[in-house]
């Protein structure tokens, strides 16, 4: 007999007992997602600059990378990293696999988002910067990237949410993330409802605020711009 039975179909004690596990798993997810997203952004920035500059050979490599990354599932990428590579002596920890996998995937998405932004900076806009005596590196840094970044914000936000969602497959590289904990609890205690409820709640708490912030930023971007606080 449980005391809480009257109030709920759920076993509250169970939930309370195991919520620290979820918290820990969520922290792990957040940490890896954060590192992965930052690394993805840097990768994407690098790729988009190389593509803008059309650096020979390098740009072909980057195009190949982008196609490989965008046209294969993260799950398979992870299997290859975690189970395949050790066979030729490349041993990676679960966490490294997760971060490398997420960056391999996210880099191409970030690159595409930034490239769209860069494409929207007109040729004559950059020419006007050149005509002021700026070097290519200065034009990229002070003129192209700030504008490209601003127009890319909605896409970058969407990528961020996408990448956090993708972290849910990390349990396949034996990382004790939220899915891993949930699956464990279902397997060991048969507390399916409780385990799933906490799983859903964890992802809600993790992603809803980010999603809301992204929507707000997006709306601001759509209706306003520089020096346009919505009144014009």
């Amino acid at each position: 007999m449980r005391k809480v039975r009257d109030f709920s179909l759920m076993d509250l004690e169970f939930i309370l007992e195991f919520s620290p596990m979820y918290l820990e798993a969520a922290m792990l997810t957040i940490r890896i997602a954060l590192i992965g997203i930052v690394a993805s952004f840097i990768t994407g920035l690098f790729c988009s600059i190389v593509k803008y500059l059309k650096i020979p050979v390098l740009v072909q490599f980057i195009n190949l990378y982008i196609e490989l990354s965008r046209n294969t599932p993260l799950l398979i990428q992870l299997f290859f990293l975690y189970f395949g590579l050790p066979k030729i002596g490349i041993l990676l920890s679960s966490e490294s696999c997760a971060i490398i996998g997420l960056t391999f995937l996210g880099g191409s998405y970030m690159a595409e988002a930034l490239r769209t932004g860069i494409d929207q900076v007109t040729k004559i806009q950059t020419e006007s910067a050149f005509s002021l005596g700026m070097k290519k590196s200065q034009v990229i840094r002070y003129i192209i990237l700030p504008q490209a970044f601003t127009t890319s914000i909605p896409a970058l936000c969407a990528n961020m949410i996408f990448l956090i969602k993708e972290t849910s497959v990390f349990s396949v590289v034996a990382l004790a993330d939220l899915m891993y904990v949930a699956k464990d609890l279902i397997g060991i205690y048969y507390k399916t409802d409780e385990a799933l409820l906490m799983l859903v709640l964890s992802y809600l708490l993790l992603l809803l605020p980010i999603s809301v912030i992204c929507s707000m930023v997006e709306r601001r971007m759509r209706y306003a711009g520089f020096g346009n606080t919505g009144t014009v």
Partner: peptide, 14 residues
């Protein structure tokens, strides 16, 4: 050699 363009081309983010 300074140049001014027909379409102004001010930097919109500054």
């Amino acid at each position: 050699v300074g140049m001014v363009f027909q379409s102004y081309e001010l930097f919109p983010h500054r």
